[in-house]
Design a protein around this nucleic acid. Structure first.
Length: 255
DNA sequence: ATGACATTGGTACAATGA
């Protein structure tokens, strides 16, 4: 079971790259963020022709999430239950024994802003829901664009980024709280190359200089630890002529 | 340097991202 996540920054622009990548990596489940599509424009027929079922939650212009899968999704949940959120950020479904939650965490803009307050509220709601999901389903994967760099080693210039958005103590405390519910960071379960990022700014030749952040994550419930075989960031799609600013993260589980 | 670059909606440039 190969589970992946990728912020594509517009699925209409990136669809050819997504189709290429599905062919190259053959994930069983791929969570997408920032589809930036209304539900009526979701390219489900193209994806089905490539061998993937889709479930999605969209809105005009911003946000938008989807789960693509070899097998059809079961028990689909759109949005965080009980959270009245006009922003399309969450879609969850069950694949075999595994509950997969695909999420596009709020950016938060800057500490002290209204958007930061929204991010904190949203994180509270996610945490409460994840606790319930873990009580119901033994095997849970929380994947997506977290917009949180959990530690200084996840930041190309931790001094410059200290206290900045994605790196604030409040965001990092929320990340640890998710782990404390009984999850672990699949990427950090293995030795990884230093300076591993999942996002590079479009500006300033950041990708060429490898100046980035690791903000896209795959968290797995402890019940899945023994079956995790590998976890990696695939930088290949970031080398495209017209790439997303994010690279996919992949976790491979036995069976 | 409220900058750079990319995307959407709409057809000029503001909002948003991270």
């Amino acid at each position: 079971m190969k589970i992946a996540t990728w912020n594509v920054n517009s699925l209409s622009v990136r669809l050819p790259q997504v189709l290429d990548w599905l062919h190259a990596q053959s994930p069983d489940v791929l969570a997408l963020q920032e589809t930036k599509l209304t539900d009526d424009r979701f390219p489900h027929a193209d994806l089905l022709a490539a061998g993937y079922h889709s479930v999605w939650l969209g809105q005009p212009t911003y946000n938008g999430v989807a789960l693509l899968s070899r097998e059809p999704a079961q028990q689909v949940q759109r949005g965080i239950p009980g959270l009245d959120d006009p922003q399309a950020r969450v879609i969850a479904a069950t694949f075999g024994e595994i509950r997969v939650i695909g999420a596009y965490f709020p950016n938060g803009q800057a500490p002290g802003s209204d958007k930061f307050a929204y991010k904190m509220q949203w994180l509270d709601a996610l945490q409460a829901w994840l606790a319930k999901e873990l009580a119901q389903d033994a095997k849970v994967a929380l994947v997506g664009d977290f917009n949180i760099a959990p530690e200084d080693r996840d930041v190309y210039d931790p001094v410059a980024w200290e206290g900045q958005i994605h790196c604030t103590p409040e965001e990092r405390a929320h990340f640890r709280s998710l782990l404390d519910l009984g999850m672990f960071d699949a990427f950090r379960a293995f030795e990884q190359p230093p300076k591993s990022w999942s996002w590079w700014d479009y500006r300033n030749l950041a990708f060429r200089k490898n100046q980035g952040l690791r903000i896209d994550h795959i968290l797995l419930s402890e019940s899945l630890r023994a079956s995790l075989r590998q976890c990696f960031i695939d930088k290949a799609p970031r080398k495209n002529e017209r790439p997303s600013d994010h690279a996919p993260v992949v976790a491979e589980l036995e069976t």
